[in-house]
Amino acid sequence: MSTVRRWIPNQHGAWAMLAVPYLAGVLTGSPTWLQLPLFLAWLLGYCAVFHAEQWVRLRRASRNPRAAARHRRPALVFATATLALGLPLLVAVPWLLVAAAFMAPFLAVNVLHARRNRERALVNGLAAVVPACGMLLVAHRAGGGTLAEGLAPALACLLYFAGTVPYVKTMIRERRSEAYRRGSVAHHAAALVAAALLDPWLAVPFACYLARAAVLPGRGLKVAVVGAVEIGCSVLLLGFLVALHG
């Protein structure tokens, strides 16, 4: 069990960001067999990148060589598994190369921040959000949908998950920062307007997101509670996207 914990990335908030846009893409289209191995390759790829970034970061940030070394094997295993599953998918569906090319610059930003030991930087978090939400378009297209059909749900995911980056900081690492709180509330207010323009019904969940961004910071909530609230918010978004676009 301890080995499993070392291999599975401990960035708990990332799992909702990996799963919700992808599931929204599947459920707002026509589910096909292709989406299953594609989703598995997506998760394996995330695990490979996580360990590779930790290896890059700790080689410079830690004086203990073992700290970086323990990420080398998981990175290689997950990368090999991703390639074994992903290469046949690329052969069967060549347009996935376009999606991979789109994600590459954002991955480069994440690797650069890992090398500088600045993974918690706001820009780094926002860079990770974009390809995760872009996977909605990939999953939707894999089910026979069009990019035009998936654009509104993908933008709604981008508005929500981009907002989680500053909001979670106001609840944990930047909980004493008034500037972060004001910035988070400002983003959520703008996101509410933008989401309502995408679909008036989206004003309902985004009003809830604005309320939690304005009310919850400073109340001393435990990390587990913060995480549970975000899981509920993610499921709420998924439910609305499926109901509106499914």
Results as ranks from 00 to 15, higher is better:
residue 1 M to V: 10
residue 1 M to R: 05
residue 5 R to P: 02
residue 11 Q to D: 08
residue 20 V to S: 06
residue 23 L to A: 14
residue 25 G to C: 10
residue 28 T to I: 10
residue 32 T to F: 09
residue 32 T to W: 07
residue 34 L to A: 13
residue 34 L to T: 15
residue 37 P to C: 05
residue 39 F to G: 15
residue 41 A to C: 14
residue 45 G to E: 01
residue 47 C to R: 00
residue 48 A to H: 03
residue 49 V to Q: 11
residue 51 H to V: 06
residue 58 L to P: 01
residue 59 R to I: 00
residue 63 R to M: 07
residue 64 N to A: 05
residue 70 R to I: 15
residue 73 R to I: 12
residue 83 L to T: 14
residue 90 L to W: 01
residue 97 L to M: 03
residue 99 A to R: 05
residue 103 M to D: 12
residue 103 M to R: 00
residue 107 L to M: 10
residue 109 V to D: 04
residue 114 A to E: 07
residue 115 R to I: 01
residue 115 R to V: 02
residue 119 E to C: 00
residue 127 A to E: 02
residue 136 L to T: 15
residue 141 R to G: 04
residue 144 G to N: 07
residue 148 A to T: 10
residue 151 L to P: 08
residue 155 L to F: 05
residue 155 L to M: 14
residue 157 C to M: 01
residue 163 G to V: 10
residue 167 Y to G: 06
residue 169 K to Q: 09
residue 188 H to P: 09
residue 188 H to F: 11
residue 192 L to S: 07
residue 196 A to I: 00
residue 197 L to Q: 01
residue 200 P to D: 08
residue 203 A to Y: 05
residue 205 P to H: 03
residue 205 P to L: 06
residue 210 L to G: 12
residue 213 A to I: 06
residue 214 A to N: 09
residue 218 G to Y: 02
residue 220 G to E: 04
residue 222 K to A: 14
residue 222 K to I: 00
residue 227 G to C: 08
residue 227 G to F: 03
residue 231 I to Y: 11
residue 241 L to E: 06
